[in-house]
Design a protein around this nucleic acid. Structure first.
Lengths: 194, 194
DNA sequence: CGCGGGTTTGATGATGCTCAAGCCCGGTGG
DNA sequence: CCACCGGGCTTGAGCATCATCAAACCCGCG
């Protein structure tokens, strides 16, 4: 299971990974299988692990007072899952994270990350690149919510993450886009007529 | 003007700043005054500078086909302005950035940042902390848009950035919150009655 | 065959937008 | 000192978009 992670790191960091670095990665990241609907994180918990998705599909969402789920993030293979803010600051998370498909993830805990991984140059480099990319994606998302209609946001999703449509049911996609499943259904119906 | 920057860096980085580091910062950051409505960045340009706001108030926004402005970011003293994605990747920005008050900023260009600043540990540390905080703030914002009503988003703003209400007119606050000035006006009227 | 999860459809209603008008207030110039 | 102007804010009427609720449908699976 770790090969995919090693390959992933090597492919995006310019600094090399030594044999002992690989060794470290192998011991620090612990594999875990998650069945569909199994939680990686629940609201009010502190996010103790960041996970690298080797196989499967995960979702991160908040639940409002009325019990409605609001999906903030969807993750497939080679994505990272976890609530970074909770993980870094040790604060309780407002999110749930669970598996949508049966999944395999590699888990990294807080202390291992900061004490044993941070000394590896390739990791520091990768980690800051990821933060950066993450921030870019979020910025685009905020901009989409401020300036686009429901239909435009859906079209944007088709362009940027078409794979989501294959892996998640529509009601989840709808929530991710900040609309109800009925609205999404009507938008799709609408789109067909053209 | 640079003292404020130096003080700012010292207060948030654990690594020390040497005399020569301070020297470097003094030469690299170039002061610039911006009159109200003056642009720091325009749509389709590459963001060549990141700016540290010493004094004043800035806004970052996109403009849609109908000519409507959508504010994505507001910045006051000791905030950073610029389109990070455009700055880092050298891609054209979809945003405008201009001064809302007469302002003083310290500008940092791309090459200076990556070649002369990156070697300074305090900077690396600060830079990644900022990326992180920025990502956290954006994540919250996305969550707010997905799960909160216009009124709830306004209340959230009052809690988190009350100073914005003092420094920016309502129509800008409204845009920042993803609503029209009329809606914000009604929300405020509504709130008074309680 | 019936059940469960997902999707669609329709009727109704709330939320927030658009457009238009008027108001308030702090300048600026006559 | 007053008139006017412009920017910002408010108010109202009508409307579009999207949510809600309820029902029906679809389909793979035990």
């Amino acid at each position: 299971m770790h090969e995919r992670l090693i390959k992933y790191i090597k492919s995006r960091a310019s600094s090399p990974l030594s044999e002992s670095d690989v060794e470290t990665l192998n011991t620090i990241f612990v594999p875990r299988k998650l069945r569909k609907r199994q939680y990686l994180l629940q609201e009010a918990e502190v996010c103790k692990y960041m996970g690298f998705v080797v196989k499967g599909a995960m979702r991160q969402y908040s639940v409002d007072e009325k019990g409605v789920e609001h999906v903030v993030e969807l993750s497939l293979e080679e994505w990272w899952v976890g609530d970074r803010e909770s993980f870094v600051n040790g604060t309780p998370s407002p999110y749930y994270i669970d598996a949508w498909e049966n999944s395999e993830v590699l888990l990294l805990n807080h202390d291992d990350f900061f004490q044993r991984l941070k000394p590896i140059p390739a990791i520091v480099e990768l980690s800051s690149k990821l933060d950066e990319r993450h921030a870019f994606a979020l910025q685009r998302k905020v901009n989409a919510f401020i300036s686009l209609s429901a239909e435009e946001r859906y079209n944007e999703l088709i362009r940027t993450y078409p794979e989501f449509l294959q892996r998640f049911p529509q009601h989840i996609i709808a929530s991710y886009l900040g609309m109800t499943k009925e609205t999404l259904s009507r938008i799709r119906h609408h789109a067909l007529k053209k």
